[in-house]
Amino acid sequence: MYNYWLAVFLMMAGFYVVIAQGNLVKKIIGLGMFQTSVFILYISMGKVEGGSAPIVTEGVEAYSNPVPHVLMLTAIVVGVATTAVGLSLVVRINEAYGSVEEDDIQELDNELDTIQESGL
């Protein structure tokens, strides 16, 4: 059962970073951890006791399940592509606000709102 606990632990660590930390780059790293925990969950489910890697070899009887491997392989590459989209959003936010801290961005937004309201 320890494989599930590891996955749950890492997932919660990533989740904590996403909700508790204010820095946007760190949030993306948290999402990455969350994602990796899902990979670990899938891959550990695919493991068969005494099995070997799913490449046909002579003299091997049991193979681990190839289906989770396929799913996670593509997920990793898609993951890096979406991470890149997230990071480029961070870069744009930094250009617009001059900060990647959530609190600073919130303050700037509030100031902007009050200015607009007083203008009306």
Binding site: G46, S52, H69
Partner: peptide, 24 residues
């Protein structure tokens, strides 16, 4: 865990490319 293809991808992508992107 016998997932050689996945390990390969993770090493190239996770440890390689994403680190470069985050540093940029």
């Amino acid at each position: 865990l016998d997932a050689v293809d996945v390990a390969f991808t993770e090493a190239a992508v996770g440890a390689g490319i994403s680190t470069v992107l985050m540093l940029s």
